[in-house]
Design a protein around this nucleic acid. Structure first.
Length: 658
DNA sequence: GTGGATGAG
DNA sequence: CGCTCATCCAC
């Protein structure tokens, strides 16, 4: 079944009078069959998603690291400006991007922590006394590590929930599954279709129980908000009382749906995890809970301008239209940039409601289905567990004092290489089979067109600063040449070194992981040897370049060459499986001639064992008959694909193709 | 492959 | 508009 979910809006859209169908799925009937389904995916009427983010994360990281009282105003400094401001500091009117002097003027007591930096010669970043942008490079490593701790707590707290790390301080959580489990636990009478149900499993569920939102967070009201008593804060509103006593119609039982029950359970679970994170790690978080990612994200920022208190907000389906309509659409993910600006200027509109008119709908056309749906609170994108690591790893540096001699490049390349080495090593603590396929060097001259050069990165278990730096140096020479070879003047203002194609080896190669760990437990990344048998001698970077050069120049044809050799010479890079007749190959990085034969032989043996295991597992699987694995439904996803630009025409048309 | 563009914070 | 990082896509 390759047909995708229909992306087409109702045809009424293009015939005017679409209003009646806007927001028409806010209270779907929920049947026993749906409740007991496990694979409804984004169409699940009980879907519940949360977006949880850390408050002023970098600042919180430093506050925790230094054991500072969280009520103290604290900022994180990067060179002369601020990159994070905690809530106590915000009370003084201090904002991000402010100059450090200005901030100090506003608050003399301000605690200022400069972000950690690398400096040349150090394999690790540190909190130096006077970091200098001329010689140091910012390190965000500590924040990445802390971020991973938070993510891990989400995962542990929700074994059956899906987690998607959205940024260093944000994650989406799909509560649908854990919530469903909870519903069935709490309301066991839902487990069976009643014998007298008119349509059997397709009968609607009985009316939901009343919900107490108390302690669960801020419930966004259904009715147009009077600014004061708009939302009900579950924990302190004392049931349903507000100042003027006029609100609260929205906490009305007959408006309660099973989806609200689901939201409330998610809110409970979310609150638990957030408290747990606060206790164990010291970080305060905010959360938004709604029926999809986009709304969850929007909900998380509900009414918390400068309110320090840890908070979470809940958006009931019934509240979606009133909440969405006045929302400036540029606050919506992916509409915050040029696209949003283009729409705003083209049509002179600013809110979601402005865009809900028939005229707008016609203008957007069918290709803009993503926008159409988003404006109506529909978002089919899935909470998709990200590969545990990113596909790329980049260390970049802007040079306030441009490089004018090619020979100066080495300096920065070493610094960037040190960062990459550390990050890769740390990533491999979790995922030993991690392997960056290529190393890329970018360099930009002033405003000129930056250029980049890349090369395959050799497999090595212990990617040292030296290995990375010498490969980087080689790229540098290819990119900018050498002092003597250059004729034109040089003025490099930006250098970046990065890994791309960072991936775990796949299952067939998994057992090779032993080779990553094996003998080295040393933390000494500056040690010049590569530690496995392949490179024994201690030597300088020149030698490394030779090795890398050898590796690079021959790697392409390696597998073919070695394939013709007798399997026992030790340099074979593949074997033929007797069971399936397939040829199983070593991964590229292990098959080059820069790798010693005995190392390859060992790797091959491991591969063999792995491959046999694979067949064993297959046979076992065969005996366990029924595989009712849920069919994957492709959701409408990724605005990028909707708004792709090609030879952009003028104005808004740049974003929407006919 | 690589540079450009975009977006987020 | 200062800096850092990631991803996608057209050429």
């Amino acid at each position: 079944m390759s047909s995708t979910v229909s992306n087409k809006p109702p045809s009424s859209l293009f015939k005017g009078k679409a209003k009646a169908t806007d927001f028409d799925d806010l209270n779907p009937v929920i049947t026993y069959r749906q409740l007991h389904s496990h694979n409804l995916g984004v169409k699940d009427p009980l879907r519940v998603i949360a977006l949880c983010d850390s408050d002023a994360f970098y600042a919180a990281c430093e506050q925790v690291r230094l054991g500072i009282d969280p009520s103290q105003p604290l900022v994180v400094q990067q060179w002369d400006s601020l990159i994070a401001v905690n809530y106590p500091a915000r009370k003084f009117g201090i904002t991000r991007m402010e100059k450090i002097k200005e901030a100090r003027r506003k608050c003399p007591e301000l605690i200022v922590v400069h972000v950690a930096t690398y400096k040349e010669g150090e394999s690790q970043p540190g909190y130096w006394d006077n970091p200098d942008t001329l010689t140091h490079k910012v390190s965000l490593d500590h924040y990445r590590r802390e971020s991973n701790k938070v993510i891990r707590m989400f995962q542990e707290g929700l074994p059956s929930g899906e987690i998607e790390k959205a940024s260093i301080d944000e994650a989406f959580i799909d509560f649908t599954k854990p919530v469903r489990e909870d519903i069935l636990r709490r309301y066991p009478y839902l487990a069976k279709v009643p014998p007298d149900a008119p349509d059997g499993p397709d009968s609607p569920l009985p009316p939901p129980p009343p919900i107490s939102w108390e302690g669960l967070g801020t419930v966004i009201p259904i009715n147009p908000a009077s600014p004061e008593s708009a939302a009900t804060e579950g924990c302190d509103s004392g049931a349903h009382l507000t100042h003027d006593g006029s609100q609260d119609i929205d906490i009305n039982d007959d408006l309660t749906t099973w989806h609200d029950v689901a939201l409330s359970i998610a809110a409970e679970l979310m609150g638990k995890i957030r408290r747990d994170i606060h206790e164990k790690l010291g970080y305060t978080t905010s959360a938004g809970i709604a029926r999809n990612k986009f709304l969850a994200k929007l909900t998380a920022s509900y009414k918390k301008p400068n309110s320090q208190k840890t908070s979470q907000s809940i958006l009931r389906n019934a509240a979606i239209p009133t909440y969405l309509r006045p929302t400036p659409f540029q606050k919506i993910r992916f509409l915050g940039g040029k696209l949003g600006k283009a729409i705003a200027e083209e049509y002179d509109v600013s809110t979601v409601g402005d865009l809900l008119t028939d005229e707008m709908q016609r203008k957007f056309g069918e290709e803009s289905i993503w926008v159409y749906e988003i404006l109506r609170g529909i978002d089919r994108s899935e909470v998709k567990e990200k590969a545990a690591v990113n596909k790329s790893m980049l260390a970049a540096k802007n040079l306030p004092q441009p490089i004018t001699k090619a020979s100066q490049g080495h300096h920065w390349i070493r610094v960037l290489a040190a960062e990459l080495a550390l990050r890769l090593r740390e990533a491999r603590e979790e995922l030993p089979t991690l392997w960056p396929k290529t190393l890329v060097l970018h360099a930009r001259q002033g405003y000129e067109t930056g250029r980049s050069k890349q090369a395959s990165f050799p497999f090595t278990r212990n990617a040292t600063v030296d290995v990375i730096a010498s490969a980087g140096d080689r790229l540098w020479r290819e990119l900018v040449g050498t002092d003597v070879s250059r004729t034109a003047p040089l003025k490099v203002t930006h250098v970046a070194l990065g890994f791309t194609g960072v991936e775990c080896m796949d299952a067939g190669q998994r057992s090779i992981e032993g080779f990553f760990r094996a003998p080295t437990t040393s933390n000494d990344v500056d040690y010049a040897g590569v530690s496995e048998g392949a490179h024994k001698r201690k030597r300088g970077s020149e030698d490394f370049e030779d090795d890398l050069g050898t590796w690079r120049s021959r790697s392409k044809t390696d597998s073919n060459i070695s394939d013709t050799r007798p399997p026992q010479t030790g340099s074979s890079t593949s074997f033929l499986c007797g069971k399936c007749g397939k040829r199983v190959e070593l991964p590229d990085g292990l098959s080059g001639e820069g790798i010693e034969d005995d190392f390859k032989a060992e790797a091959l043996a491991a591969l063999r064992v792995e491959h046999d295991d694979f067949h064993l597992a297959q046979e076992l699987a065969k005996q366990l008959s029924s595989d009712d694995s849920p069919r994957k439904i492709r959701p409408a996803e990724k605005p990028q694909s909707k708004v792709k630009r090609q030879r952009p025409p003028e104005g808004i048309a740049r974003f929407f193709r006919k």
